[in-house]
Design a protein around this nucleic acid. Structure first.
Length: 125
DNA sequence: GTTGAGCGTT
């Protein structure tokens, strides 16, 4: 199952990270995977919400798809978020879409970090 | 008419 394969991958990845207590970053990885929100990086500048949703709608119900726009210029910042109705579907999307070509760019798909209030932005855990 | 690692206005 892709979910547990990815968990093992993230665990090994977190243990090799520098400057962090392994168990802390491992718990962060597990916490991220308990969510069905995905971070999508490396998007072409032309990608919009609907394009993003279409690209990720083959692995389950996409409840939200958003390309983050620059608040001043209104142009894409080249990344976005996709929400699924379940963690399992999100996991399948990571396995299937990470590293794939989308509009000529190689996209990076991973579980999103927990969205935190601004006053906690500098905190790791 | 530009950019290319990152983690989002509610």
């Amino acid at each position: 199952m892709a979910f547990f394969n990815k968990l093992g991958s993230l665990t090994r990845q977190s243990i090799s990270q520098k400057g962090q207590v392994p168990v802390v970053s491992m718990l962060n990885s597990i916490r991220c995977m308990s969510s069905s929100r995905l971070f999508i990086g490396g998007l072409p500048w032309s990608t919009d919400d609907q394009t993003l949703k279409d690209a990720f709608s083959g692995f389950g119900e996409v409840t939200e798809a958003r390309v983050i726009m620059d608040r001043e210029t209104g142009r894409s910042r080249g990344f976005g978020f996709v929400h699924y109705d379940s963690v399992e579907n999100a996991s399948e999307a990571v396995a299937a879409m990470d590293g794939q070509d989308l509009g000529g760019k190689t996209v990076r798909v991973s579980f999103a970090k927990e969205r935190r209030p601004h006053y906690q932005r500098e905190l790791t855990f």
